[in-house]
Amino acid sequence: MTQTRSIFDASDPMALFRDWLSAAEASEPNDPNAIALASVDPDGMPNVRIVLLKEIEEDGFVFYTNYDSTKGQELAQSGKAAFAIHWKTLRRQIRVRGTVSRVEAAQSDAYYASRDLGSRLGAWASLQSRPLDSRETLEARVEEARNTLGDNPDRPPHWGGFRLRPETIEFWADGAHRLHDREVWSRESRAGDWRTQRLFP
Score class of each variant (00 low, 15 high):
residue 120 R to K: 00
residue 120 R to M: 07
residue 125 A to L: 09
residue 106 A to W: 05
residue 128 Q to L: 11
residue 120 R to E: 05
residue 102 R to E: 13
residue 99 T to H: 06
residue 117 L to Q: 04
residue 126 S to A: 15
residue 115 R to L: 12
residue 116 D to C: 11
residue 114 S to C: 05
residue 114 S to G: 07
residue 98 G to Y: 01
residue 121 L to N: 00
residue 112 Y to D: 04
residue 120 R to N: 10
residue 110 A to G: 03
residue 116 D to W: 14
residue 108 S to N: 09
residue 111 Y to K: 05
residue 128 Q to V: 05
residue 123 A to K: 04
residue 113 A to T: 11
residue 114 S to K: 02
residue 118 G to D: 14
residue 128 Q to S: 07
residue 106 A to C: 04
residue 100 V to W: 08
residue 128 Q to G: 11
residue 107 Q to N: 12
residue 129 S to M: 09
residue 125 A to E: 12
residue 122 G to D: 11
residue 114 S to V: 00
residue 126 S to V: 02
residue 125 A to N: 03
residue 122 G to Y: 05
residue 121 L to W: 08
residue 122 G to N: 11
residue 125 A to M: 07
residue 106 A to H: 08
residue 109 D to W: 00
residue 119 S to P: 06
residue 126 S to P: 14
residue 115 R to I: 08
residue 108 S to C: 07
residue 112 Y to H: 04
residue 102 R to V: 03
residue 102 R to M: 08
residue 106 A to P: 03
residue 126 S to E: 10
residue 99 T to P: 09
residue 105 A to M: 02
residue 113 A to M: 12
residue 103 V to M: 05
residue 125 A to G: 10
residue 106 A to D: 15
residue 122 G to L: 09
residue 122 G to W: 09
residue 97 R to F: 01
residue 99 T to Y: 10
residue 129 S to L: 09
residue 110 A to L: 04
residue 99 T to M: 10
residue 100 V to T: 00
residue 113 A to D: 13
residue 106 A to L: 09
residue 101 S to E: 12
residue 110 A to I: 01
residue 126 S to T: 03
residue 107 Q to C: 11
residue 118 G to R: 08
residue 126 S to I: 08
residue 108 S to H: 05
residue 117 L to M: 08
residue 100 V to R: 00
residue 111 Y to Q: 13
residue 109 D to M: 02
residue 104 E to P: 03
residue 105 A to N: 05
residue 105 A to L: 14
residue 97 R to V: 07
residue 110 A to Q: 08
residue 125 A to R: 07
residue 113 A to H: 08
residue 123 A to S: 09
residue 104 E to K: 06
residue 129 S to P: 11
residue 129 S to I: 04
residue 99 T to K: 08
residue 119 S to F: 05
residue 129 S to R: 03
residue 110 A to D: 13
residue 124 W to G: 03
residue 100 V to N: 00
residue 114 S to I: 01
residue 125 A to P: 04
residue 117 L to Y: 08
residue 110 A to R: 12
residue 108 S to V: 01
residue 109 D to R: 02
residue 118 G to E: 11
residue 114 S to H: 01
residue 108 S to I: 00
